[in-house]
Amino acid sequence: MKFHLPAGPPDLADSRSHSDDIGRPGRRARARRELISVLNTFLGIGLFFAVWWGAASQLPRSRLVTPLDAGRDIWSNFYYSPRLGVFGLGEVGYGSLLLYTLGNVLTGLAIGGSIGILVGTASARLKLLRVFVDPVVLVLGTVPVLVAAPLFLLWFGVVPFTQVLLVALYSAVMMILFSQRAAQNINPIYERWAMTFGAGPAFRIRHILIPGTVPEIIGGLRITLASAWGLEVFAEILGAPSGLGQAIKALTNLNNVSGLLACVVIIATTAIVTDVLLFVLARRIAAWA
């Protein structure tokens, strides 16, 4: 079958003249935008440290230490910190405490996120399910962590499960809302078009609903991950067998400002790194967005 483009104005008639370049300017512009975004992030971090340094130089060391002091504290206590052993944390350093916290955050997020994505997308399509899900989410979402965390401690005790459950619960609530919105935001024209090709419900879920919701769900997952760090540390401060929250509690009792700031820096750095990893993953699986 041979086809010739109809005659028309020379500047518009032939798409071949410009179609060879399709994608290249878009990719270049995108790469430039991302580079600027990364530079802005580093600029923001640099500005934060500059302000911190400036404030520390004006305040006594008992109130605020410099970023360099906090860095030295991390260096000397990362593998083993004798002062933490006094508070019953055993022979630990920031490193092993971080692993405990990170493990709980990722486990809680994996469990809660999976449940949230599944329930959220399903409830966006099934009205009957939404009748049950929406009130539950509303109630759970309005229960303050300050109330839920002590209750969980009383019910389940000072065990890792308590913190994981707290993170999983709030992650699930957030991801239900994000996923529900993502599924509802897909333009119905895509499903209608798929149906005209003979695509059944299962095929449409796999090829329309899932890929179409991925960018928004990953965006929600990044916000949920940031919240999960706060929840986990808070739950650990209230009561946990290990974790950086417990270190913060111990260092507060010791009035150790450099140690406290060291914990904050460790948590913030790990949170940023995990967020960047999630962002990179998002770029790989939703390159079209």
């Binding site: 024209i189 209608r192 005209t196 003979g198 890929p211 179409g212 939703a286």
Partner: peptide, 15 residues
Amino acid sequence: ADRGVIFQQDAVFPW
């Protein structure tokens, strides 16, 4: 699949 449809709205799957 016996009736292909072209809509006015852009229905090409962006993903």
